[in-house]
Write a protein that binds this DNA or RNA. Structure first.
Lengths: 237, 237
DNA sequence: TTCCGCACGTCAACGGTGTTGTCATAAGGT
DNA sequence: ACCTTATGACAACACCGTTGACGTGCGGAA
């Protein structure tokens, strides 16, 4: 039997046969369990075998619901998009709205780094994504940006938010050991560069180490919003 | 023997013993072969076993040069940084220098999309990376930014460049079929949203489709540079 | 020039991974 | 109550990174 023939679309499912351990599987339950697994035990915990164990079923049973692990992760990602958008409320002030939406998206993606990594660059074309485009464009056009400007700023805003999310997520998604090493790298290596060969690093070492310990996204977002505001003033004249 | 004791620093290597197939290994050769493998057969092709086969040595021989695959990956990342930095010439004008450096880094990473994806989020702590930090900080401090400001802008600049590179690289790195589908998504889906449910998308559809067809990085970089220039003017007063 | 220590390539093995072919069984429409 | 077949279980496969043991032959010392 071909693998793609094995999976039955969720809507067409009729027989719900409990697992040996008494669990009744469903796409919804699997996705939720996967998200829980990632949240509780880190990104590395999401393996087909562990997911099977957590659900109380044989790992291969999952292939009745998803063609492969990639498809499973996409389903997880879609769930994430929905959750993010659902919790956002606009205020009517464009700059505050973009700021809160950006920070929220960034933060929500980081809650599930594994899914974020896989998802950030993909155009899903699904309802949640389309709605987010509509909403952001609405904020910008409502603020008075002309269409071309609004689209350009939308593009920068979305790509910047998603790409920073991916960048920061990939740090969180690293195996434990590599991540610890990453955190120590800046203090240990950059605080020790001699002033004669690396004057700029030496002169800024303390502030450099502090700065690199956190995400660059908030600062990047502020600079982007400032540039947009300046552009808006210029256009209005 | 402990794994970390097994690897000998490149400088201290004395005995160069050819492999059964007559290859003389070196850190340099291994990194170059890894990059070639990634470029030819995709990021997934970079496994210890395949790298060993491509080099003509036993997979475990690599552990004489790198403690684990992660350390190997960091070496690959640093090689990428080095290639970029080597081809860049400063002009003395900070804005032009940052612009050219950013665009060049972005472009260079995209020539090795698979490698960029794997490496661009990592702090290598190796020589090329350290030099790039020194150079960029020098440009900013030379322009008159106070230390704290210079560091903050450096952070935004570097993370923005790398994260956009990763975002754009991941599109290039998709399997052929998925990539074609991705390209068609914007025209096909967003050009067809009805004006009553999605007024903002419908109103901007042509310019939206055109804009999303290219990278957002140049526009993001310009906004970031504009914000930095405004900040510099403000500080100078 | 010889000789010896040990650097370094090789081998085999371990425990993990995703994935698939096959089978038994019970759910659900008839 | 039956029969079809959806679906979970099992076992196996090929691959992965990593490690410990081993022996060969290179390079420095004498």
């Amino acid at each position: 039997m071909n693998a793609s023939e094995r999976v039955v679309p969720e809507g067409a499912r009729r027989r719900r046969r409990p697992t040996k351990q008494g669990v009744v599987l469903s796409e919804q339950l699997i996705v939720e369990t996967a998200l829980r697994l990632i949240g509780e035990h880190g990104a590395a915990a999401l393996t087909v075998r562990r997911l099977g164990a957590a659900l109380g079923c044989d790992p291969s049973a999952l292939y009745r619901y998803f063609r492969d692990t990639d498809e499973l992760l996409l389903a997880v990602a879609d769930e994430l998009i929905g959750r993010t958008l659902r919790s956002w409320r606009p205020t009517g002030e464009w700059r505050a709205d973009l700021r809160s939406l950006g920070l929220r998206m960034h933060a929500d993606y980081l809650t599930h780094p594994q899914a974020a990594l896989l998802t950030c660059a993909r155009v899903t074309g699904r309802t949640h994504e389309i709605r987010s485009v509509e909403v952001i464009l609405g904020v910008l056009r409502g603020a008075g940006f002309p269409d071309a400007e609004a689209v350009r700023i939308y593009h920068v805003f979305v790509d910047q938010t998603l790409s920073f999310a991916a960048l920061d997520a990939s740090t969180l998604a690293l195996p434990e050991q590599a991540r610890a090493q990453e955190v120590q790298a800046w203090p240990e290596i950059y605080a020790r560069q001699p002033a004669d060969t690396h004057p700029n690093i030496a002169a800024t070492a303390p502030v450099l180490v502090a700065e690199m310990g956190r995400s660059g996204y908030p600062a990047a977002l502020e600079m982007m919003l400032a540039a947009a505001a300046a552009r808006l003033q210029h256009v209005r004249r």
